[in-house]
Nucleic acid binder design. Structure first.
Lengths: 150, 150
DNA sequence: TCGAAATTGGGAATCACTCTTACTTTGATG
DNA sequence: CATCAAAGTAAGAGTGATTCCCAATTTCGA
């Protein structure tokens, strides 16, 4: 049972997080997590349901809210008008940012060098301090055109 | 007529931008720009109409789209489900980022040191290159709690 | 195993936003 | 300075993503 497994047991983590928030890891929720693992990258709920027909639309909306508030999934906000979801960084263990294609709406993940993330954090905390704003997290998005639309 | 006026003639800039896109700077559009100047910080359209009752809701929506595509206003996307608008950086001449209160939904502007913006740009272009993604602009948001909700 | 509590899912309801349409304003032109 | 076509206005209908409702089903602890 390695503690530093590059692919830790996502399902166990999901079950624990849900339980800690008073929810169950039901089969529908597991199917959603499996689809998110499979697809990789923030997806809209219609895309998710398309990827696994056994999911009901209304349950997918409800469950993604539950997964979000339990810290298993993250809601990704983009300029197009579907919400997108991906597994939370708590779960994937990787901090990343998003490249959003303003043409097709697709979202890609990317990472920055850790050293740069550190100086980014320093700058942001500085800014938060001077505005008396308590920082929970940051989002860094690139808006532009992906290679498909380029 | 100083060229480097800290408060350049926003209305002239707005009129020119609109004309360049085949639109007029009508009185309703001027009232919207005036409200955006007065309020400062991204506001929802209901907030805007509240700030100036003479504005009609449907016209406000339509005109903000026109102002956006003419480069006068910018649509700000946040986790709550109202679109927010502010004057474009082209118009204000200041690059800034957003602190978003996840409690009340309010959005504050903040700026980073220019030197840091430069190294940020370098990192992002590096990342864009390796993903074959053409960067148009970036967004850097702080999510957390504002001083009112703290 | 049993029962209470949680979950499911299909369809109705909601609500921010956009479209339609008939009317008004604007400004270029003769 | 009169005309009129293009541009703008605004009230309300329409749209579509998301949420709500609730009866039926599943789950888990005792």
């Amino acid at each position: 049972m390695p503690t530093d497994d590059p692919k830790p047991d996502t399902h166990q983590l999901a079950a624990d997080s849900l339980k800690a928030h008073g929810h169950r890891y039901s089969s529908a929720r597991r199917r959603i997590v499996e689809a998110l693992l499979r697809i990789d990258g923030p997806v809209t709920i219609p895309q998710l349901v398309e990827a696994d027909d056994s999911l009901a639309l209304s349950s997918a909306y409800r469950n993604l809210s539950v997964l979000e508030e339990s810290g298993v999934a993250t809601r990704v906000v983009t300029p197009d008008d579907h919400a997108r979801f991906e597994l939370a960084e708590r779960v994937t263990r990787r901090h990343h940012h998003h490249m959003i294609c303003t043409d097709c709406g697709d979202v890609l993940d990317f990472e920055l060098p850790e050293s740069f993330e550190d100086s980014l954090d320093r700058e942001l905390h500085q800014a938060g301090r001077s505005a008396t704003f308590t920082i929970d997290r940051h989002h860094l998005d690139l808006l532009g055109t992906c290679s498909d639309c380029g």
